[in-house]
Design a protein around this nucleic acid. Structure first.
Lengths: 213, 213
DNA sequence: TTAGCATTGTTAATAAATAAACAGTAACTG
DNA sequence: CAGTTACTGTTTATTTATTAACAATGCTAA
């Protein structure tokens, strides 16, 4: 399904709508209003309606949105029909956390492999995901047609891992390292830095504190 | 130091500028140009200059910015003079990852405590951080004047943890649970959801792939 | 059967974030 | 010592994201 130029934030919210809807899906409740979705995610109903407008979904004027239909439509838009395979590079605490969070969640995304350099982890299975040595990365990525890589290695190693992923044909990278990466335009890169997040919270907590005291 | 209404994104970048600058700080190199900072973080030089303008810092026309001065100024703005204390609630893989990442990084933020319900973890020290039972949370938070909480528990438990943190006088919360939380306006809340991030990467990776093929 | 109400879908307004444009100026160069 | 260069600092424009406004519609209930 093609919808041109869906805004980044809308894509994020669609993912959240779907998860929220999956949670309330039941026989008794088949429909949901925009203000109900909004309340679950602490956003405004207008935002919800606007997002749904962008993906061309229409609800019933008096009953709201058909939950099942909406879940399916979001799937048609954000999922890849053939599914996408994911690998985690770096099986430390963060890599493990990701795999555990992920487990049994999304049917169209499958966690296929983890990579590390620690011999104790290699050739073992963590939470259903086999771990290989990093120098097998190109081989495994290509063989299994893995298109998404999550980087959770120590930051010094991030650039070379990214390069290796790109050369192996990866299409998207999620970088949890504080080291900003350089990738070609045909690879989508998303970066998230925990320390920056914490410093941001610290800043606004301090500011709030001054304002409300 | 008061700068009114610093934009959220600017605060995030200031944190990143500081870390990047700390890395290149040395005797030989005392100054840095906006385009050098920009290159390190893969943003535009204009963005850098604009952010520095917002915090009222002036560089030298021909030499650029004094690295040491700039680091100090950013500290004066985003750090709290008296320091801020942080606790992690949920010492699973993600909680541990956070503590390890954090270790020995920021002097003005100190990781004081972790909380869990697993008896094997309680009353032990992980990476220098002692772990307590969750029902000691209010007590420990108040006693140690902890103002920032990081939630990494399973999502069902997130709302009660958040409530407990708020009642204990916390000022800022970083929620890594997919469950959106409700907190009063005087508590700053930042939420990050790994699965949404991954689905976003998957979506744009797919889209890029169609576009560039 | 008609007035009122609750809800959607869309357009218009506002706010936030980024990028472009450009004036100003100290150092360098011939 | 005049012209050029390589920067900064600030204003203006553009893009992106959110919010507000409101018309349209069909259900409900008198």
């Amino acid at each position: 399904m093609f919808i041109k130029n869906l805004p980044h934030k809308t894509v994020e919210r669609l993912s959240q709508y779907r998860r929220a809807l999956l949670m309330i899906l039941s026989k008794e409740k088949t429909h949901v209003f925009s203000h109900e979705i909004a309340q679950m995610l602490h956003i405004t109903p207008v935002q919800v309606r606007r997002d749904l407008m962008l993906i061309g979904y229409s609800g019933n004027l008096r009953k709201g949105y058909d939950i099942k239909e909406l879940i399916d439509l979001i799937g048609k838009i954000i999922d890849s029909e053939r599914g996408q395979r994911v690998a985690v590079v770096g099986l430390g605490n963060l890599g493990k956390a990701f795999i555990s969070y992920f487990k049994g969640k999304r049917s169209k995304l499958s966690m296929i492999a983890a990579f590390d350099i620690n011999p104790e982890k290699i050739n073992r299975v963590f939470d259903g995901v086999p771990c290989y040595h990093i120098n097998q990365l190109p081989e495994i990525i290509k063989q299994n047609n893995i298109s998404i890589g999550i980087i959770t290695v120590p930051s010094e190693q991030a650039p070379e891992i990214a390069e290796s992923l790109v050369l192996s044909g990866i299409k998207g990278i999620l970088n949890y390292t504080p080291k900003p990466l350089n990738v070609p335009a045909y690879v989508y890169l998303e970066e998230y830095d925990m320390i920056t997040s914490l410093e941001k919270v610290a800043f606004f907590a301090k500011k709030n504190d001054e304002r409300f005291k």
